[in-house]
Amino acid sequence: MTYQTSNEEKAIEIVNIAGLEAKVQAQMDTGAFGYIRGGAETEWTMKENTAAFNKRQITPRVLQGISAADLSTKLWDIDLKTPIIEAPSAAQGLAHEKGELDTAKGVAAAGSIFSISTYANTTIEAAAEAAPGAPQFFQLYMSKDDGFNEFIIKKAVAAGAKAIILTVDSTLGGYREADVINHFQFPLPMPNLAAY
Results as ranks from 00 to 15, higher is better:
3 Y>S: 10
7 N>H: 15
8 E>V: 15
8 E>L: 10
11 A>K: 07
13 E>F: 06
13 E>T: 07
18 A>T: 13
29 D>H: 02
31 G>E: 14
32 A>D: 14
34 G>P: 15
34 G>I: 07
34 G>K: 02
38 G>W: 01
47 K>I: 01
53 F>L: 15
55 K>M: 09
57 Q>Y: 04
62 V>E: 04
64 Q>E: 13
66 I>P: 03
66 I>E: 08
68 A>P: 00
68 A>K: 03
71 L>R: 06
80 L>D: 10
81 K>Q: 14
84 I>A: 08
86 E>N: 09
89 S>G: 08
94 L>Y: 00
95 A>T: 00
96 H>F: 07
97 E>T: 07
99 G>C: 05
101 L>T: 03
102 D>H: 06
105 K>C: 02
105 K>H: 04
106 G>P: 09
109 A>F: 02
111 G>A: 12
114 F>L: 12
115 S>T: 15
116 I>D: 07
119 Y>N: 15
120 A>D: 11
124 I>P: 11
125 E>H: 04
127 A>N: 07
129 E>W: 01
130 A>Y: 09
133 G>C: 04
136 Q>A: 09
138 F>S: 07
139 Q>P: 15
139 Q>I: 02
141 Y>P: 09
142 M>L: 13
143 S>H: 09
143 S>I: 02
143 S>D: 13
145 D>P: 03
148 F>A: 02
158 A>D: 15
163 A>K: 00
164 I>E: 14
167 T>V: 13
172 L>P: 01
172 L>D: 07
175 Y>M: 10
176 R>M: 11
178 A>Q: 10
178 A>L: 11
179 D>P: 14
182 N>V: 05
183 H>I: 08
184 F>N: 15
185 Q>F: 06
187 P>V: 00
190 M>N: 02
